[in-house]
Simulated assay, not measured.
Amino acid sequence: MAALLAAGGAAHGQGAGCAAADWPLWQRFAQRFMQSDGRVIDHSVKQQHSTSEGQSYAMFFALVANDRERFDKAWSWSIANLAEGDMGKRLPAWQWGRREDGSWGVVDPNPASDGNLWFVYALAEAGRLWNEPRYTEQARSLLALVAAQEVADLPGLGPTLLPAAQGFTMGSATWRLNPSYLPVFLARALQQLDPKGPWKAVLASHARLLGEASSKGFIADWVAWHAPSGTKGSFLTDPQKGDVGSYDAIRTYLWAGMTPRADPLAAVQQQRLGGMAALLQGGAALPPERVHVSIGHAEGQGPVGFSAALLPYLQARGAQAALKAQQERVRRELLEAPQDAPPRYYDQVLGLFGTGYLEQRYQFLPLGRLQPRWEQACPNQGRSATPATAR
């Protein structure tokens, strides 16, 4: 697979004298799941919906591919359709698609904090890498809204990222949290972008979640923080989703695998999230679809996207036999799948993250900076980075 397209080729996002990355999986994803106006569609659901998460992920992948045209379109569509034309004044709605009455528009107006933070990160790093101050300012504006509306000071835990602005507080003493919503490397970048913000404290509460809510080497999709008056508080099994780790939790292993080894929390993640590697090294051919984390019981067969998500994690843990087995599955079922096999949206997303990282198309540096492979071929694009984003 070629590292870069030849300079002057007809690739999306190509800057003057600087080639866009040749990333076949990204090109197939964009052709299958992105409209020409930048809308990312999940065809597998009834609503044919678009989400803030999907839009922000597409922007990140476009940045990794040096595909500015698709980056701009995905961002413009998101502003117009998820934020009523002004992302600086309101957080984007989580879900847009076909409503029950057949009309098209916002289906769920509640924002999702993970998508919002990936928007912020993609914009901030695009501002630095493409030398575009407008992106950086948009990132700061959106991050200020997230801090004001989606960070809560929980008793006994401190400032904590909530999954959304509303709907995750159960009474006055219990909050529902999602461990996959805050990658450590992303939180490091937020501290650099907004040094006076709550992000150092938010990462500290997240570190407690990873350290105290994992069980048997696994993490659940959702956990609860319970802090009745007069107590120190503790993490409990989520009252709605139970102790199951599945389609959300798989990202927690993915983020752990991509966390720079020099990061102080890298060792914590490796220590607390070793169950999946042990399972695969112990003879399981494929990752399970579900794990009951309180007892370490695995069920079902996870889709190929799970295997792709685990590639950086298995590499980081030195689980070579398991890594090789999952690489072979990903090659067979994702990278070289028959053209007539309909690709699944989430498998493709996890595949882009996992294989892109393993192919060294990008990496995260200790303070959260993104280093895409194409940056070495474009030495002049990031020279004007401001002190707040240069790191």
Rank of each mutant, 00 (worst) to 15 (best):
N380K: 12
P109Q: 14
T252K: 01
L182W: 08
E333K: 13
D243L: 09
P133N: 02
A298G: 04
L210G: 04
G115D: 00
V107G: 00
S76F: 10
L265Q: 15
R98Q: 14
G318R: 12
H226G: 00
I250Y: 09
E212C: 01
M1K: 11
G13F: 06
L63S: 12
G283D: 08
A390Y: 07
F218P: 05
V202Y: 14
F218D: 05
A7H: 00
F71M: 10
Q192G: 01
L254Y: 06
D248W: 10
D340I: 06
H292G: 09
V291Q: 14
G275E: 05
L334K: 15
V223Q: 11
R39M: 12
Q55Y: 05
T136W: 07
L236Q: 14
R134H: 03
D221P: 06
Q240C: 00
F60P: 04
A139T: 07
L5K: 03
L370R: 14
P338A: 09
A58C: 08
K73T: 06
S36V: 03
P338T: 07
L4I: 10
Q48C: 02
G282S: 04
T355M: 15
P133L: 11
A377N: 02
P287K: 15
A152E: 11
Q281L: 05
Q14C: 07
A19F: 03
P338Q: 07
M258Q: 15
C378I: 07
S246W: 10
G17A: 11
F235C: 11
K241V: 02
R68C: 03
G85H: 11
A201D: 13
A278M: 08
V184I: 07
Q376G: 04
Y121V: 09
N380P: 00
G257V: 10
L142D: 08
V40H: 00
G15P: 03
A267M: 07
P109T: 01
R373M: 08
Q376Y: 11
L5F: 10
H43Y: 10
P343K: 13
R134Y: 02
L311T: 08
G283I: 00
W199H: 10
